[in-house]
Amino acid sequence: MIQPGHFFELHDVRKEYVLRRGLLQRLTRRAPKVAAVDGVSLSIERGTIFGLVGESGCGKSTLAQIMVRLIEPTAGKVLYRGADVARLRGEEERAYRHAVQMVFQDSGSSLNPRKRIRRVLAEALSARGVGGAAARSEIATLMRQVGLDTALLHRFPHELSGGQRQRVGIARALAMKPEVLVADEPVSALDVSLQGQIINLLCDLNRELGLTIVLISHDLAVVARACTQIGVMNAGKIVERGTPQQVLFSPVDPFTRQLLASVPRGLAGRHRRLEPDISPAEKALRSVRQPRLPADEIGRQRSASIA
């Protein structure tokens, strides 16, 4: 079943959340379920940058968390180098954890506010068993790799700019010597002038270290620029897949077309939205859009499934 040479694969992955209502409802009948990820199959080749685009609530972040095993899928399989990651135990599980790292959206919570940058990196290295002088020299290497001055090592996260924090987040992931980097909205909190710097850094790491990158973003333009393959996600499903050229210039799915049409286009788009009519296609789309999970529900489910 598993063909050799396949690097990172998802097979019909589903993640369902049970909507918790009142106690009575829980006792009397089965609580309603919502599928945040609804049967996603993907194959990501080694050394490529795979882009995942979609709007908030489409399930792309859930999928990212499944990839790095912060949450377990309800059904389906994640295969890494041909092995089912749900069955990994002990040292193998640890190796997988280290091999697949994540870069978070900089929302101020991706770095511990009370730890200096040096400590953030040192702790990551010590989790890999690197300490002492080796750690010191590796920290310097990591800082250079992400384009940061080692003078920033004694700073606290709030003393850095958003772009610098994002670079630290990347360095922390690199400290684990990963094979795959899952970057969840790595630039959406940054100014336009800095977005390019971070995206280019990811591309450089992909080229120089052969790092496989899964780039998740709501910004189709950013993803199209950096990735070799793109998947467009809507309502928990991958609705379109292809190269940037295919997705941008000959989109097949109505949602992709709507997404493309919505991107602001400067002077060319002046006042074009005076009559925001809703197309029949969009109407149909809306009716099948999944109900959104309340944010706290997601948080609780997440912590419950990790614990």
Partner: peptide, 15 residues
């Protein structure tokens, strides 16, 4: 629930 805690989990640090 913060992301830096998730990052620690990914480093294999126990709960």
């Amino acid at each position: 629930g913060a992301n830096y805690v998730a990052a620690r989990r990914l480093q294999g640090v126990g709960e």
